[in-house]
Design a protein around this nucleic acid. Structure first.
Lengths: 206, 206
DNA sequence: GTCTATATACCGATAGAC
DNA sequence: GTCTATCGGTATATAGAC
């Protein structure tokens, strides 16, 4: 666990310096993990990027795995929030599926480095395995929506639901490998394009 | 470089034992790299999986990075072969694009562990960076096909070609994360489904 | 070709001064 | 809160016997 538990409460006056530090450490760490891979990133490299020493980092977090855990929790919480919002909606399964996919793209863009880290997990440690379990649960919930949409007749039924879900996620998740905010494509346009390609395909309109 | 250069020449009589050994080492290594990540895989782990010692491995290859280089070369050579075959074909750009995508899916399934390793590279070492450069060249060639197909009118033009190519690859490449040969979906069916979803979309036929 | 033993370097993490 | 110095462990890779 982090040694600076109140770090997440923002706007706590002058004591906010600690919160900024933890956030800065986490941002730098996630960027380094994504650049070189989690295992290939040493605490020494993080210290170098932060312009401090290894010990200074250990004051803020209990270790390298703690940084990973905090980062993954942020990504997973944001994704799970999309499902929470979805459950409060009306509409048929097709509409709700579109809502979730759009929400996933938005989270992916908003917290790009954090979601990138999540999507590259290999399950080497217990922290990673627990994160993967949470991610699988998210995937399972979306897969259920896909099945409902299929039963409703809004999705084609000649391809099985599991394959459909996986190809959908494959397309969406791959966004972290190339999309960079601030480029020519806005997040809204990106979400539109993804959903349009997924549902209507690339071929010229029939 | 490998110390057993003639290892690739198959069918060389009784001396074929060395070839088998190198192939076995490579297969085990690639599997381990995919399970734990390249950096997180130690030579000791490979020795354990092979039932020998670290030194025995160093007799066959010059080091851990040599194993990575051999594995990536195999995956890249197979993918590049698809483009070579494509250039000898006639037909419009749309047909040729479908041919390349189908070929990519087939290579991906046939050499699943090797392509998986390729797709997970981070570019930490020179070997990885050179492999990434070759992969980018492959991607660029396919992107060119996409543009031609767009100009021909066989692909929709309301989404830019780069985004189209990336979403296509995202869907195809994600196959390594879930597809397992020997399951209920044959490679041919998989290729059909991927191309069908990519071109016609998931929505019920209009 | 494979083994044990080891050289050398770097890893994550800690101690203790300031 | 950050520093230098260092611990114990493990990594890649090699030496030399067999």
């Amino acid at each position: 666990m982090s040694q600076t538990a109140p770090a997440r409460s923002a706007g706590n006056g002058r004591a906010g310096r600690e919160a900024y530090d933890l956030a800065a450490v986490l941002n730098i760490a996630v960027a380094a993990f994504n650049d070189h891979g989690y295992e290939a990133t040493s605490m020494g490299m993080l210290a170098q990027r932060l312009g401090t020493s290894k010990s200074a980092i250990y004051y803020h977090v209990s270790g390298k795995e703690d940084l990973l855990r905090l980062a993954l929790d942020r990504a997973l919480s944001e994704l799970e929030l999309v499902l929470t919002k979805e459950m409060a909606r009306s509409g048929d399964a097709g509409d709700r599926l579109r809502f979730v996919l759009r929400g996933a793209v938005e989270v992916l863009v908003k917290d790009l480095p954090y979601v990138t880290l999540l999507l590259r997990l290999r399950g080497n440690t217990e922290v990673e395995r627990q994160a993967l379990a949470r991610r699988r649960e998210f995937d399972r919930a979306v897969a259920e929506l896909v099945e409902q949409a299929r039963d409703d007749g809004s999705l084609r039924a000649d391809i099985d639901a599991r394959t459909t879900t996986r190809l959908l996620f494959g397309m969406i998740n791959s966004i972290v490998e190339w999309y960079r905010p601030g480029g020519p494509i806005t997040p809204e346009r990106l979400a539109d394009d993804v959903i349009s390609v997924a549902f209507d395909g690339l071929a010229t309109a029939r």
